[in-house]
Design a protein around this nucleic acid. Structure first.
Length: 642
RNA sequence: GGUUCCGUAGCUCAGCUGGAUAGAGCAGCUCACUUCUAAUGAGCAGGUCUUUGGUUCGAAUCCAAACGGGAUCACCA
């Protein structure tokens, strides 16, 4: 167990460090460099609470590790009251910290309601962007990781004292939206009243309905492209652009003698060629141009279909338990992006090609040329992101950081975005960062929306809550609860399990999502932790005094729990620095395991010594407090009973 | 191919400012509920930390190369 937060400097370490430095000439005859003072957690098998590594001193002191250890140990024991004793074992100086010190730590923790948190809003303002969905597809498993991660990072930063603005940029425009709109117009069946499908006449959730037509577009699109390829292969090339046909002929000829893998690449290029020649794509592009020109009919269709999607998303966000302080819509920021591009051309940051498209040359920075405006004048993703960023700074001039929670497949995009912002002369570009997270894999392989192997967010959430319901009814202590309380409990357990499952892995790593394991309730899971909390609450409800801390003796298991509790502020700091809820998850798990060992081996209510009993109750109470607080940081609530 | 991320137990993951015998959970095998919630705890078994070199008193951790995997390199978002 060597988590970095356990090695972050705490009170004891900083005391020892400064005393050693102050007295280094006296002790060692020379001035010592502070970085040779290295601490680590004491190994389980060795007695002690804190270990100083002696090896670095040996070189400077020119004596044996044991000699050096004893010399330093004697000196520190004399100077510092919290050191009860020490041992030197093969180059490691292990300090035993007095029980009195640990009990006073527990007392400190007990006296702070918001233990571990910095003063709210005592630091600068940071915007955390997350979720940021497309309005043409329902949310899926990948979005769950994104939302839970973004929400949690925002909470962690708040706990670190930052003022946080949770935001999302809604990708409500672009060619992809036109695809859904077009498909709905062309392919939706009419009901007996002559209406096309709507959420109200089909009972479908709005985002699901729109998503259905996005898929339908893709299906028809591919069909048309394939039939064009068939035509080309039969030499029927009338009505197609010469450029495409010539390229097709060239590609077809180049297939001669190629390997299977190369052949597939060529076929893909041919497919792209054919797709560009489809009437469907042409119609979609026309629609985008009409949309940018604010054509009333197109706009009405767009607002109607978007409102369906927002209604659907709102219900999904509610289930997820996430929220936002400020929404941005690309349909509103892309114009600003366009203006900035024009300004950039004048500044010489961007340049125009003969066909009218606008680019930036980043080859000098080791990147590529990147497009910012298409030759038809419409904007691309990058243009919109530039506009959105500037818009945010206009809204919040004191913003001292923008965190973009977006998957790691966009690492390159954000590298380019931040560089462009910098080249445009925005000094705040240095405070932008990409919270990049890995893809979520399924045991069956990668999720692909076109192949229908996506795990839908709503379905998954329903499933985990159902599973929690079943388990809780089987083994829970829910007699006498109202139906509403029961529903809340099932929801809390199911969602807690899901959130914890997705957040316990280091965000930047690709992770495996095993549906069976995600509803598992034993081991390193959310419900395991929630259970510990419920058990403590039940214990406390049975009475006992939790106000007077008089004990002066500690068992090993008790001391271990206090040690972990004392680490909580460092954990919050570490998680904030790393933007990693996983740091919090790992900590909670350690804490709960440690508490369970204590709970299982030491009697509490049955204890006859009142001082001991009270101390154990206070210890338990504060474990529950930290569980509740830390689970809150990952967006998980904890129950009183379960 | 260029860039970039990753490779730790059968599986999923911790550990990485270099430090003692590399840790959990799951799965497998043993135990412990007339005691405070057993959704628990105790234990057994399971490892050439991908490989090779380098730096160092000391490397899972730092450096280099190789091998294996992912992402990305669009007038898509």
């Amino acid at each position: 167990m060597n988590h970095s937060y356990l090695r972050r400097v705490n009170f004891m370490e900083s005391q020892i460090k400064s005393i050693l430095q102050e007295n280094s000439e006296l002790l060692f005859g020379i001035k010592i460099d502070s970085n040779i003072i290295q601490f680590q957690k004491t190994r389980k098998e060795v007695e002690g609470d804190l270990t100083l590594v002696i090896f670095p001193f040996v070189k400077a002191l020119r004596c044996s590790p044991d000699e050096a250890g004893n010399k330093i140990g004697d000196f520190l024991k004399e100077k510092l009251s919290f050191i009860a004793s020490y041992t030197v074992v093969s180059g490691f100086l292990n300090f035993v910290i007095s029980n009195q010190y640990w009990i006073s730590q527990l007392d400190n923790i007990d006296n702070k309601a918001d233990f571990g948190f910095e003063t709210p809003n005592s630091k600068s303002t940071i915007m955390v962007e997350y979720s940021s969905p497309n309005t043409n597809k329902p949310l899926h498993l990948g979005h769950l990781r994104n939302n839970f991660l973004g929400y949690s990072v925002a909470e962690i930063l708040k706990a670190n004292g930052y003022k946080v603005i949770k935001s999302q940029i809604i990708n409500d425009r672009g060619i992809h939206i036109c695809k859904s709109m077009l498909a709905w117009e062309k392919f939706s069946p009419l009901n007996e009243k002559g209406e096309r499908e709507t959420p109200s006449n089909t009972g479908l959730k709005g985002d699901k309905l729109v998503g259905k037509y996005y898929v339908e577009f893709d299906k028809q699109f591919n069909k048309e492209a394939n039939s064009i390829i068939d035509l080309w292969e039969n030499g029927e090339v009338d009505g197609f652009s010469d450029k495409a046909v010539n390229e097709f002929i060239r590609l077809t000829e180049s297939k001669e003698g190629k390997e299977e893998k190369a052949l597939k690449g060529i076929d893909d290029k041919i497919k792209d060629l054919a797709k560009n020649e489809t009437t469907l794509l042409r119609e979609a592009k026309d629609m985008l141009i009409r949309w940018e020109a604010r054509d009333p009919q197109t706009y009405l269709l767009w607002t109607t279909m978007n409102s369906w999607v927002y209604e659907g998303f709102a219900s999904t966000y509610k289930s997820m338990g996430v929220d936002f302080d400020k929404l941005y819509y690309e349909s509103e920021t892309f114009i600003l992006g366009k203006d900035i591009v024009f300004e950039g051309i004048e500044k010489g940051v961007f340049f125009k090609k003969e066909d009218g498209s606008v680019w930036i040359d980043l080859t000098a920075d080791g990147l590529d040329e990147k497009i910012l405006l298409r030759s038809d004048g419409t904007t691309v993703y990058m243009t919109q992101d530039v506009g959105t960023a500037v818009d945010r700074i206009n809204d919040y001039p004191d913003l001292n950081g923008m965190i973009y929670t977006v998957g790691n497949e966009q690492d390159y995009h954000f590298k380019v975005l931040f560089l462009i912002l910098k080249k445009l002369g925005y000094s705040w570009a240095d405070h932008c960062s990409h919270l990049s997270y890995g893809m979520v894999d399924l045991p069956s392989g990668k999720m692909k929306s076109r192949e229908g192997t996506v795990v839908d967010a709503d379905d998954l959430m329903d499933e985990v809550v159902q599973s929690a319901k079943q388990m809780t009814q089987e083994r829970g202590y829910i007699d006498g609860m109202t139906e509403l309380d029961k529903e809340n409990l099932f929801n809390l357990i199911g969602m807690g399990g899901l959130k914890y499952y997705l957040l316990k892995v280091d965000p930047k790593k690709r992770m495996m999502f095993d549906p069976a394991e995600s509803i598992e309730l034993n081991g390193n899971t959310g419900p395991f932790i929630q259970y510990a909390h419920a058990r403590i609450k039940s214990l406390l409800a049975r009475g006992g005094d939790t106000t007077s801390l008089k004990a002066n003796d500690l068992a090993l298991a008790e001391k271990e729990v206090i040690k972990l509790l004392a680490q909580y502020p460092l954990v919050i700091a570490e998680a904030g620095k790393e933007l990693s809820p996983a740091v919090v998850c790992n900590y909670i798990f350690e804490l709960v395991k440690s508490y369970n060992q204590f709970y299982q081996s030491i009697p509490i209510l049955i204890e006859e010594n009142v001082d001991l009993k009270n101390m154990r109750l206070i210890l338990s109470k504060n474990v529950a407090k930290v569980i509740s607080s830390s689970m809150g940081l990952i967006g998980v609530k904890v129950p009183e009973r379960m």
